[in-house]
Design a protein around this nucleic acid. Structure first.
Length: 249
DNA sequence: CTCTTAATAT
DNA sequence: CATATTAAGA
């Protein structure tokens, strides 16, 4: 709260070197983006050829920390790309678009994106994206118990994570407030529609073969996990058992 | 390793 | 309350 001047200057300890991969069909916008990202002190790799984006990412696993994808593509469905990248590459993906429609934003998130930024982008927003990379990393560390499948990619962030935790207070004013779409994996909301798909899958399989993984497979909902389904399945079984009156409180 | 259940946590 | 996570046995 004591500093207010340096807007363009990067604060001490700002996570420079974040490796950002950007996909945008519009090469002009792409250039601007690149420029801004560079101003943030990030390492930037760009492509204006979305059809190759996934391939490039595949070929460079471990070389990037975060992915930015403009969803307004003409050569393919931008959200499909988002979904595929999220599925295949374990990196935080941020959707970019000029469309601020709630529905569209939801779509981006639903397809696995960790955030959705509406163009035109402000430097301020880009300065904050490193948080997603760190958060994703922290979550994975928490989830993955003993698995040794974490690669060198992480060591790049590890040091910074510690640093950032310590320095968090310094960034709080701007950082803590941008919680639009980040946070941990959102809990599943079993809307009637989603539940319907669940029921549908169960029926399709037959009550005996209706096992979490198969249900999940048939439902084909991005981001939905086996655990989500298992939990819901359990709930439904229980409900049937003790349908009516319940002794409680 | 996945499935199921119950218990407990968020 | 609704959903998630954990623990233990199959």
């Amino acid at each position: 709260m004591s500093e207010s001047e340096s807007e363009a200057m990067l604060p001490d300890g700002f996570p420079a070197g974040l490796r950002v991969f950007v996909v945008d069909e519009d090469s002009v916008a792409l250039r601007m983006l690149q420029k801004m990202l560079l101003q943030c002190g990030y390492e930037v790799t760009t492509t204006d050829f979305p059809l190759q984006a996934l391939e490039l990412l595949r070929a460079n696993i471990g070389n990037y920390d975060i992915v930015l994808i403009d969803a307004n593509l003409t050569c393919m469905d931008g959200f499909e790309l988002v979904e595929n990248v999220c599925r295949e590459i374990s990196l935080p993906v941020i959707v970019l678009s000029t469309d601020s429609e709630f529905k569209n934003v939801m779509k981006g998130i639903k397809y696995g994106a960790i955030d959705y930024l509406v163009k035109p982008l402000r430097l301020e927003e880009l300065k904050l994206i490193w948080k997603h990379a760190v958060k994703k990393y922290l979550n994975e560390m928490k989830n993955i118990n003993e698995s040794s499948s974490m690669d060198v990619n992480i060591s790049h962030l590890t040091k910074k994570s510690k640093d950032l935790v310590r320095k968090r207070d310094a960034y709080d004013d701007i950082a803590l407030k941008d919680n639009l779409t980040s946070q941990k994996r959102a809990r599943v909301s079993w809307t009637p529609e989603l539940h319907a798909k669940f029921i549908n899958a169960v029926n399709q399989l037959g009550i005996n073969k209706a096992v979490p993984i198969k249900i999940l497979d048939i439902m084909d909902i991005p981001g939905l996990t086996r655990e989500n389904v298992a939990s819901h399945l359990q709930l439904n079984k229980n409900n049937r058992k003790i349908a009516p009156t319940q002794v409680h409180k």
